[in-house]
Write a protein that binds this DNA or RNA. Structure first.
Length: 454
DNA sequence: TTTTGAGTTGTTCGA
DNA sequence: GTCGAACAACTCAAA
């Protein structure tokens, strides 16, 4: 009787899971396990934990109650299981971001044999490189073209049957992570992921290019949390796409996720540090009252506040408004992007270190994009363009429920806007935009220091 | 090696 | 209200 461990991490699914198939092919019986890292849990916000708890339950259900859920150090847990079940191999899908990479190297360093099959990406980070010299791409569009040429495998089916050992009662440490009161998150699990994908293919995908920017409409796939936890694989999505304009736009969004994973893979320090180092020199404000107002959705700018309240309530924010609130924090409040990225890390159910850090850096102007320095989002104009009727604002800011568009985007222009305690603007965007451009000018024109006594 | 064209997501101003 | 130009200059990719 040969047994092999299958270690679930960010691949909480049975279908299109090559690593799981490898584990089954190489054994008579598998030992499916998820390990809760207490250090990591302490850094994880309650909404994401609640989601993970639900996802583990869903996975366990698919595995007919055979999932081991262990708490503790990965090396100790795996060693114990290997010994108990007489196994000598641990099957995984490979991970590439700093935490996962380091964790797996430590496990291997302790003498545990890891067998890597596949990854959370259609094309693993590090694979797409410039043909001319083998170095990685730093610009999205050429990366995308090369990524398409590189191509990806077809999906694989779920295993026909899974023979798994029956866990001891003590190895079923399913966490009790309640959802905070007043919050609602997207349903977790592989089944929910496929249901959403089916719904989106029918109702959203062919309008994606038109609808995805409309904050008040359910026009995006909302698969981000499912992708983050690997409840569905991007390869599964790509296999369903055709070459129409709308579907190619969607494919390009999947490619963005892969591009940022690749950029972080080659620049691991950029999870929390500047990709373009000269932005470190810029003058910033320390987070204080204004930062608190931003966090709570009380800046006085309705589109910004609606978005922040959506994040607090749902653990998710529309992509368009992620850019708007990020631009507001960095360019209107002059606060470093890392403070915003950390707040997103705490609250996002779909938090992905590569997409988050580089999404923020793109908006801050210090990321991979050679963005024009004058690109500063106008929170009022963005609202008028991408929430034309004000539906998004009214949904999350009841204090402004009595206003209609376009007034709702500029409540300070309407006499009775502040009856319900909605805050006044904490800054004047027109003033802060100019301030932001001035601060950028300072680091742009700064010459390298000349030797003093040359 | 040198040159050339291009770069997710914007805003403002003036015609 | 709509539209095109200007915003200034740099890095990257590819020929």
């Amino acid at each position: 009787m040969k047994r092999a461990i299958f270690w679930f991490r960010r691949d909480l699914r049975l279908s299109d899971n090559p690593a799981l198939l490898a584990a089954i092919a190489n054994s008579d019986e598998i030992v499916p396990v998820f390990i809760l890292d207490e250090k990591l849990i302490k850094q994880t916000g309650s909404k994401r934990l609640a989601y993970l708890g639900q996802s583990l339950r869903a996975l366990d259900h698919s595995l007919e109650n055979k999932l081991h859920v262990m708490v503790g150090d990965q090396v100790e847990v795996l060693k114990e299981l290997l010994q108990r079940y007489g196994a000598d191999e641990v099957h995984i899908s490979e991970e590439f971001e700093p935490y996962g990479k380091k964790r797996d190297l430590r496990v291997e360093g302790a003498g545990i044999k890891l067998i890597r099959t596949g990854s959370p990406y259609a094309v693993a980070p590090g694979r797409v490189r410039k043909p001319s010299d083998g170095t990685p791409y730093k610009v999205y569009t050429p990366f995308y073209n090369a990524w398409v040429v590189h191509g990806w495998r077809d999906p694989v089916s779920a295993p026909k049957s899974i023979k798994a050992v029956t866990p001891n009662a003590g190895d079923r440490n399913f966490p009790e992570w309640p959802l905070p009161e007043g919050t609602t998150i997207t349903p977790a699990g592989e089944k929910a992921a496929h249901e959403r994908w089916t719904w989106f293919k029918k109702n959203g995908l062919d309008f994606y290019d038109e609808q995805r920017n409309n904050a008040g409409v359910d026009g995006t796939s909302k698969l981000s949390a499912h992708l983050k936890w690997g409840e569905i694989h991007p390869r599964t999505l790509l296999a369903d796409l055709n070459k129409t304009k709308a579907q190619i736009v969607f494919q390009k969004e999947i490619a963005w996720r892969e591009f940022y994973a690749d950029v972080l893979f080659h620049n691991p320090h950029t999870d929390n540090d500047y990709y373009a180092p000269k932005f470190k020199e810029m003058r910033y404000e320390k987070p204080g009252k204004a930062f608190k107002a931003w966090c709570e959705g009380k800046t006085g700018y309705p589109f910004v506040d609606a978005a922040m309240r959506q994040l607090l309530k749902e653990g998710w924010m529309h992509n368009r408004t992620r850019m708007v609130v990020a631009s507001f924090l960095v360019k209107d409040l002059h606060i470093e992007w890392q403070h915003g990225a950390d707040f997103f890390m705490e609250h996002l159910v779909d938090f992905d270190v590569a997409s988050n850090a580089h999404g923020w850096q793109w908006t801050a102007g210090c990321g991979t994009d050679a963005s024009p320095y004058y690109r500063v989002f106008n929170p009022i104009e963005q609202g008028k363009r991408f929430d034309e009727n004000g539906d998004y604002i009214r949904k999350y800011i009841p204090e402004l429920g009595h206003l209609r568009a376009p007034d709702i985007h500029e409540p300070w222009t309407v006499l009775d806007s502040y009856l319900n305690d909605y805050p006044e603007r904490i800054v004047d965007h027109a003033v802060e935009r100019i301030e932001s451009l001035a601060r950028l000018e300072e680091i742009k024109s700064r010459k390298p220091d000349l030797p003093q006594n040359a």
